[in-house]
Amino acid sequence: MTHNLQTLHIKQMSITLAGETLLAMHRDIAPGEVLTVMGPSGSGKSTLLAYLAGFLSPAFQAQGELYLGDKRLDTLPAERRGIGLLFQDPMLFPHLSVAGNLRFGLPHRAKNKRQQVSQALEQVGLAGFETRDPATLSGGQQARVALMRLLLSQPRAVLLDEPFSKLDTALRQEMRTLVFGQLREAGLPTLLVTHDEADANAAGGPIIALG
């Protein structure tokens, strides 16, 4: 992870649906910082994520600007924003092997792909899992593969959509430590959406309440 660390700027953002303002935000997220957004369902958390990631439905109107460092992102399509996503499900592609999933995220011109993949697996204690069918992995193993797939794609910022809510309690704490540790180490600005206070506490960053 050699690229420069940059801050994510959410400037004067406001999202409206049929003339009604759903949410508004003006905020910076520094490299390595985790901003936690909390709120009950229906408070606009998923709309916020869709806006940032570039998937907002045309039914919504969005004002404001999104910058990473001095590069404007909100005018770019999703695949060129460099914003990685983790959902509550690991979303490993079921038609690809574990290695296939990891390689999928590698930039096209990356060198030593095979080596990068095996190193990544080793890092999360899954050495030698390359040819495995993702469906045969446990929930925790899948979550770890998903995290490494995200990191191998070299994102500039990361969005977390309740990433721990489907894990059982014991695993949840372990994954929180792993995920936040890795993101902080990579120095990525991170936005976490959750309704679990324990997530927010583990993230250790500022907290905003929506709704």
């Binding site: 990631a53 998937f55 695949e79 797939r149 994102p155």
Partner: peptide
């Protein structure tokens, strides 16, 4: 088909045509 499959693919930096050929079509085979 869960829209998140394609969203994950795009957020990994893959262009839409690759997301279509390598994710959507295989899943819908």
């Amino acid at each position: 088909l869960d829209p998140r499959w394609v969203q994950v693919a795009l957020s990994l930096g893959v262009p839409p045509w690759r997301a279509f050929w390598q994710v959507r079509l295989p899943l819908l085979l």
